[in-house]
Design a protein around this nucleic acid. Sequence first.
DNA 1: TTGGCTGCAAACTATTTGCAGCGCT
DNA 2: AGCGCTGCAAATAGTTTGCAGCCAA
Lengths: 154, 154
Amino acid sequence: MLSTEQIIGVMSAQGLRITDQRRSLAKLFAERDGYLTPKDVYEYMCKEYSGLSFDTVYRNLRVMEELGAIEQVVFEDGLKFRAGCSSEGHHHHHMICLQCQKTYPIHFCPMPLTDAPEEFQVVKHKFEVFGYCKNCRKDAAAEKEQAAERSGVN
Amino acid sequence: MLSTEQIIGVMSAQGLRITDQRRSLAKLFAERDGYLTPKDVYEYMCKEYSGLSFDTVYRNLRVMEELGAIEQVVFEDGLKFRAGCSSEGHHHHHMICLQCQKTYPIHFCPMPLTDAPEEFQVVKHKFEVFGYCKNCRKDAAAEKEQAAERSGVN
DNA sequence: TTGGCTGCAAACTATTTGCAGCGCT
DNA sequence: AGCGCTGCAAATAGTTTGCAGCCAA
């Protein structure tokens, strides 16, 4: 995944100005390795840089996405962003934790094994696995126990 | 895929009233075998049933989705709906035409071949292939030629 | 008859855009 | 100094909700 400096480098190289907000954005995406909603981004950045407006977040997310510094994915509950990782070399897919939003690479790609029927001309594909990662699995189990206890008592 | 009568049956069985609008919706989804946006649905239904409001479309799409009469998927360009097909028996995936939105089933599922790293607990997965189907492939090729001619002349 | 369904209008959420002033380069 | 970036406010797109009248059962 890209580091803070790499993200800033990408932006700078394309002629963008490096403002405090953008530095802060770069740092955020480099620190986290999961998906963030525009709201997550806004809330994080407000801490570091108060007086921030939502428009700036949207504008910068879009610019950074167009430059390839970050990647954008549509989920059922809206748009999310993460630091670029397709630049990391080979094509790959992700396992995504439903709790913490972190992602784990899957190097296996099903496309070569998939038959395209009726002369279907393949352009792109999406393969995503959702579930709970090692850490959140524990959390989820603990919560379930608590829920069971509550309903058992009541 | 479900037929008009099957869709109406599902709704009726769950205590919903069968109104003209709902009959029209059922017919639409039974006729098409691709994804439709709420706007597509609205435009089609206006022809058959004028005086229709957008709210009714949204309300009915939601109800039908909750009942399992139709299925909902999020794409980059928004929500789309199609007649239920997971009821068709075995688990499967889809190839989706970027032009006409029709879908073709893929019976191959990559999940059994995918290793879950680090004790990742898999809950669900998504595997979708996008491209152009037999018919739209021709259309796309024809358009490309036209575009090439235009740019070649100018 | 009557409670569910519809159209209308308004509210809401998420995102985009116009504009004037500030600040990176 | 100059132009890009930002905040503010307003516009826009997509979707949901409240309410009163209408209609399938």
